[in-house]
């Protein structure tokens, strides 16, 4: 009864299968997706209340505030990356498929970013307007988030994998992951600053691009190793 001749299933196919699956799941649990986004919006909107409505101050702080809020939002959403799959046993099955684990991890990270990172990128310019950022600042803010948030998801996947099923995992993951986010924060927020002061953000953005490349190559392996360790 074992049918011979399995369909040729490429790496790309495995990647697509995981992305499609996770996006379908996200579509059926839309509330989860929106919470990250609203968290981001609320945190950014709280700063003026704490600091005062002085526009000149707010304009200076805007890149940093938005970026820190993006860091926190992305970190909060990490818990969702693997833990549901861990609880219902689908993660276990994924580890036992003949597909290379880094590819599956990459698929999961990409889907996770589409759902939790991309919305931040899209809404950030709107929040920048609240802080009276000039147009070039808004553009660079969106671009830097577009390049930077995938790095956050990739690094975060390692932390999420390591803390899988660990008690207090949610707080722990922030301890592990936030220090590693620092370079992205520096160059992300720095780029917007540079664009606003007329220096040009090219250097910052290229470095963020380099981080993305490095994270794309290394993080799926490390996250895969983390998952295998956590499943033992």
């Amino acid at each position: 009864m074992n049918r011979a001749g399995s369909v040729d299933f490429s790496l790309w196919g495995a990647f697509r299968c995981i992305v499609a699956r996770d996006l379908t799941l996200a579509m059926r649990r839309r509330a989860d997706v929106l919470t990250t986004l609203f968290f981001f919006v609320i945190v950014v909107s709280l700063f003026p209340l704490g600091i005062g409505p002085e526009m000149a101050t707010l304009r200076i702080m805007a890149p940093g505030v938005v970026w820190v809020a993006a860091l926190l939002a992305s970190m909060l959403s990490l818990e969702r990356m693997f833990s549901a799959d861990y609880r219902d046993g689908t993660l276990e099955q994924m580890l036992l498929t003949p597909q290379p684990l880094p590819v599956l991890v990459l698929g999961k990270v990409f889907a996770h970013w589409l759902v939790s990172g991309l919305p931040l990128v899209l809404i950030a310019p709107l929040l920048g307007v609240q802080y009276d950022l000039p147009p070039e600042g808004l553009l660079i803010l969106a671009v830097s988030l577009l390049v930077g948030t995938p790095v956050l998801s990739l690094i975060g996947a390692i932390g999420a994998g390591l803390t899988l099923g660990v008690r207090g995992g949610g707080v722990l993951v922030s301890l592990l992951v936030l220090p590693l986010y620092i370079p992205v924060l520096i160059f992300g927020a720095g780029g917007v600053d540079a664009a606003m002061s007329g220096l040009g953000a090219q250097a910052h953005l290229s470095l963020l691009g380099a981080f993305l490349l490095g994270a794309l190559i290394l993080a799926p392996w490390a996250a895969g190793a983390a998952l295998r360790i956590s499943m033992e």
Partner: peptide, 27 residues
């Protein structure tokens, strides 16, 4: 602190050692 707290949070010694090793290498 991350390394120490990850190690402290995992009860199983083998998993604790291996998980924190991955973290140290990433660090």
């Amino acid at each position: 602190i991350g390394f120490l707290s990850l190690q402290a949070a995992i009860d199983e010694p083998r998993r604790a050692a291996r998980a924190s090793a991955v973290l140290a290498l990433v660090g």
